[in-house]
Amino acid sequence: MTVTWTQYRRARRRSRQAWILLAAAGLAVLGGLVWFFTAGQFALGEPSPQGPSEAPVLAAGWMKPVSAVRAVPEAPAAVVLDTLEVKGRSAKDNYDRSAFGQAWLDVDGNGCDTRNDILRRDLTAAHFVEGSRCKVTGGTFREPYTGHVIAFRRGAETSAAVQIDHVVALGDAWQKGAQQLTAQQREHLANDPLNLVAVDGPANQDKSASDAATWLPPNKAFRCHYVARQISVKAAYRLWVTPAEKEAMKRILTSCPEQQTIVPQPPR
């Protein structure tokens, strides 16, 4: 069979069109996959854009401030940061959690242990064990570190989903001045509502004893409050910061220069 030049050109044109259609389809599939895994149903580790920008400290009527080494200065967080001592870490090989007293003491004397105080403060519509005004059994909240809505249900298999984080980790505090505090001052640091936030369990485990130089909340909307809260705790308990930590805090605060320190006063 003899193929004319016209037929040859027509066949080449159809071939090019077919390849263009195939390439366009491939790009569409690739774009869909990118959306699916970054913004769609299976987005991995992506914080909610509606995540909270702050977290409470005290609840009126039943929570009381804990006596710190000194009052938190009321000023821009960046200004107070510049008043903190800057130096390297002390040794951690002698750190023991027991140096901060028994976990979840009732330091403020309201009759409930600190863990349940923080759950009651942070959860929406907290439920209690029948006959108890302290022991929280459930509730939901928009968690500040990830921005996700999380449900808390007390139980051996479920309680760890919501953990109480020390904003300034006790291991970090131990290496930055807490060794020089009295035993009572360390107890107060470990149970001060200023230093405690109910958070996503895996995010808390990921943070561990990190400072701002090595870990920040995935929810970017919360970072200014988080750094200001760390500065406030360190100022209240006369703890220092490392050079890298201070630099990381300053970098965050450049986006929110009006961010104030977090002062533990009951809401009115």
Rank of each mutant, 00 (worst) to 15 (best):
A28C: 12
A55D: 13
L44T: 12
G61C: 04
S90H: 06
P267M: 06
D200R: 13
W62I: 12
G31A: 15
G131M: 03
D106K: 08
A43N: 11
A91Y: 00
P144K: 12
P257N: 00
A23R: 03
D96R: 12
Q179M: 03
N219P: 09
A160S: 14
I20R: 11
L84W: 06
G51I: 11
A213E: 06
R97L: 00
A209D: 14
R13C: 09
G171S: 04
R223Q: 15
K250W: 00
S98P: 01
A151S: 15
K220Q: 15
R223I: 08
R120I: 02
T38M: 05
F128W: 04
R115E: 10
A126Y: 04
R229K: 10
R229N: 09
F152D: 08
N110H: 04
W19C: 04
D211L: 09
P47Q: 08
E187P: 02
A203W: 07
V57L: 06
Q230D: 02
P73I: 01
T254W: 02
D108Y: 12
L81N: 05
R10D: 15
H127C: 02
A125N: 15
G40L: 07
A203Q: 14
F36E: 11
V107W: 05
I164E: 11
N110V: 04
V227L: 01
K207M: 04
H188N: 15
S15R: 14
A209Y: 00
D192G: 05
A75Q: 09
Q102F: 00
G171A: 05
G131S: 08
P193F: 02
F100I: 05
V162T: 11
I118K: 10
A209F: 01
D206F: 02
V162I: 15
A236G: 09
D96M: 00
N94C: 01
P56H: 12
A75C: 02
R10E: 15
K135E: 14
F37N: 08
Q163E: 15
A60H: 12
V80E: 07
D206Y: 02
E187H: 06
E130L: 07
T2G: 11
Y145A: 13
A28M: 11
G51D: 07
V197R: 10
V162Q: 12
S98C: 00
K92N: 09
F36Q: 13
P144Q: 14
Q260W: 02
P47E: 03
L170A: 08
D165W: 07
Y237I: 09
Q185K: 03
L119A: 10
P243S: 03
A203H: 07
G61T: 12
S208P: 02
M249F: 07
Q205W: 03
R12F: 09
E187V: 07
G201L: 12
A11F: 10
L105V: 07
